[in-house]
Design a protein around this nucleic acid. Structure first.
Length: 209
DNA sequence: GAGATGCTACCCGTAAACCA
DNA sequence: TGGTTTACGGGTAGCATCTC
């Protein structure tokens, strides 16, 4: 995610591992943190998310590949979607994306959130849709079956992620009545509202208890 | 390299709300 | 009233990472 955030027109990066470790707020960025970054880059390279060009004594060069794991060269999704939208609508759909605020990185949330919490934040952000820009974005209810079918989330990841986001005030959680006319929905389930202003305006640990 | 630690999935049980 | 769905917590296992 951080590689995608940094990349611009040219999907080639040469940041040292130490710099990545500092950006992500890892402990001991020059040693243990850098080692974690190098391990992560090797995993991404092995799974065709990047093409890693290593040379002794020099920082590794990272060539971004498509985030689908296809092994094809990465293209900026906005430009690609616009290019394909008219001629190949089905192919264009694969390049649709959501835009996250830079404060996810600059405020340190990316390093503070656990895997389940970050996953749930992305899912709730996507489910909120365009109302994410509103002062009072829509409430989202994600049933266990929806989480599994749409996003492959386990019950564990869904619940623990939501709990962590609630504790950090990144979402509000409420037992709300689900509209009775909603197909197969039941009433009185946990609904969530993304608190974008907390993500943008605060850092982990500074939100009011 | 071995043990400690952390993370996640899986399983199980309990409780509450809802529906037929 | 019994079955279903959802929320939540505890225990356990597997895996990866960290520390020594």
């Amino acid at each position: 995610m951080s590689l995608l955030w940094v990349v611009h027109d040219d999907p080639t990066l040469t940041f040292p591992a130490r710099a990545w470790a500092e950006l992500l707020g890892l402990d001991q960025p020059a040693t243990a943190g850098a080692r974690r970054i190098k391990n992560a880059l090797r995993w991404l390279d092995a799974n065709q998310f990047i093409d890693l060009e290593s040379a002794r004594g020099h920082d590794a060069i990272v060539h971004l590949l498509e985030d689908s794991g296809s092994g094809r060269r990465y293209e900026l999704p906005g430009a690609t979607y616009t290019r394909l939208r008219r001629s190949k609508p089905a192919a264009a759909d694969a390049h649709r994306y959501i835009q996250l605020p830079r404060e996810l990185w600059t405020n340190g949330w990316i390093g503070a959130l656990s895997g389940p919490a970050l996953t749930m934040l992305l899912v709730l952000w996507l489910e909120t849709g365009k109302t994410i820009k509103h002062p009072d974005p829509k409430w989202v209810w994600l049933s266990p079956s929806m989480a599994h079918d749409r996003y492959g989330l386990s019950e564990e990841t869904r619940l623990k992620g939501a709990q962590e986001l609630t504790r950090l005030h990144l979402i509000r959680t409420s037992q709300r009545a689900v509209p009775p006319d909603a197909f197969q929905f039941r009433r009185g389930r946990n609904s969530h509202q993304v608190q974008q202003q907390v993500l943008v305006g605060q850092q982990p640990g500074t939100a009011p208890a």
